Simulated scan of single mutants.
Amino acid sequence: MTQSPPVQSEASVEPVIKPLTQRQERRLREALEERFMDLVRNSKKRTDESSTMRTLDAYLTTARPLLALILQIPPAGSSASLRTFYLLRYTNDTFTAITGYDPQPDAVAQLKQWLEVLDRGWATVLKRRRWDPIKRDGVGASQECQGVSMTERTRLKSLLLSGTEALAIWLERTRRAQAQEFADAAEDTGLVEDTGEEQIRLDAFDDIFSCTLDELGERGNEMPKMTGLVEPEMLLQSELEGEGDMLAFDDVDEE
């Protein structure tokens, strides 16, 4: 008796990913541009009472849904290039905005979580996988689509290096601000109080973008650790420069 071949379960069948239609892509671009403008506008006027993003945690709360939207662009056809283009822009804009905020120790935990999602997001794009917003990770096999170009990989590496350096300076300033707060509280009360706030440690950020760097083939090249990036003269220069732009983004050719 001839046995029938095993039936593949629905759960194991990888869904076919289709690119966006021209109409869908046009509407998506319009929505993304509006959200990018909102992020940039409100972060730049963060000292103004009219801004909806006066603190870093408020900024990250608004920036996270935009990241999820970009990552869910299907990795197929021209849509895959669109996802890479907007994720490069998002990475630059957010690093520039974050390091412009005043030190805010209670936002560091949320910042670390956001960085971890961004890292998994970039690894997903580099692997040409689709993004699962529930798992917050890439799923499925690599798609039959054009991957991230060498030019885009170079720009990404540059953004990560300069962005990580700027972030290290911001974290060190925030760590010092937190330490001063603890010292002032102890001086006022004569006691060291347990506020429940975790002390900021730069080494907790040493492995940020580890997934992305693995895909870029850079983990074995002794990429600098967060704890080794901050020098006293860098902190002084940062304080003198104030809120100047710390990163420059060259427009990516979408073709």
Rank of each mutant, 00 (worst) to 15 (best):
residue 30 E to N: 12
residue 177 A to D: 11
residue 23 R to W: 11
residue 123 A to E: 04
residue 103 P to G: 09
residue 111 L to H: 03
residue 220 G to H: 00
residue 150 M to D: 13
residue 147 G to E: 05
residue 53 M to W: 06
residue 126 L to P: 00
residue 176 R to S: 10
residue 14 E to L: 08
residue 88 L to K: 06
residue 92 N to E: 09
residue 230 V to Y: 03
residue 243 E to S: 14
residue 116 E to S: 13
residue 61 T to I: 08
residue 208 I to F: 01
residue 16 V to G: 06
residue 224 P to Q: 01
residue 213 L to P: 03
residue 74 P to D: 04
residue 215 E to H: 13
residue 157 K to C: 02
residue 135 K to R: 14
residue 71 L to E: 09
residue 78 S to V: 11
residue 237 Q to N: 15
residue 33 E to R: 12
residue 143 Q to C: 04
residue 29 R to P: 02
residue 240 L to K: 15
residue 101 Y to M: 05
residue 255 E to D: 14
residue 222 E to W: 03
residue 159 L to E: 00
residue 218 E to V: 05
residue 98 I to D: 02
residue 241 E to M: 11
residue 99 T to G: 09
residue 200 I to R: 00
residue 27 R to G: 05
residue 204 A to H: 12
residue 104 Q to M: 07
residue 215 E to M: 11
residue 213 L to D: 01
residue 58 A to G: 05
residue 177 A to Q: 09
residue 7 V to Y: 11
residue 225 K to F: 11
residue 26 R to M: 10
residue 213 L to V: 03
residue 235 L to F: 00
residue 187 E to T: 13
residue 162 S to L: 11
residue 139 V to T: 12
residue 48 D to P: 05
residue 11 A to L: 15
residue 133 P to T: 05
residue 99 T to F: 02
residue 217 G to Q: 00
residue 99 T to Q: 02
residue 152 E to C: 01
residue 25 E to M: 14
residue 241 E to Y: 09
residue 139 V to R: 10
residue 158 S to T: 10
residue 226 M to A: 07
residue 230 V to L: 05
residue 38 D to G: 08
residue 59 Y to I: 03
residue 97 A to W: 00
residue 193 E to H: 06
residue 5 P to K: 04
residue 22 Q to E: 12
residue 87 L to M: 14
residue 141 A to F: 09
residue 105 P to H: 05
residue 19 P to I: 08
residue 19 P to A: 07
residue 68 A to F: 09
residue 209 F to C: 02
residue 212 T to G: 04
residue 93 D to A: 13
residue 105 P to T: 01
residue 64 R to K: 12
residue 141 A to V: 11
residue 50 S to Y: 08
residue 225 K to S: 13
residue 142 S to M: 11
residue 86 Y to L: 08
residue 45 K to G: 06
residue 129 R to N: 07
residue 122 W to D: 00
residue 161 L to S: 04
residue 24 Q to I: 01
residue 92 N to R: 08
residue 163 G to Y: 04
residue 116 E to T: 13
residue 47 T to H: 15
residue 179 A to I: 10
residue 117 V to T: 09
residue 183 A to R: 15
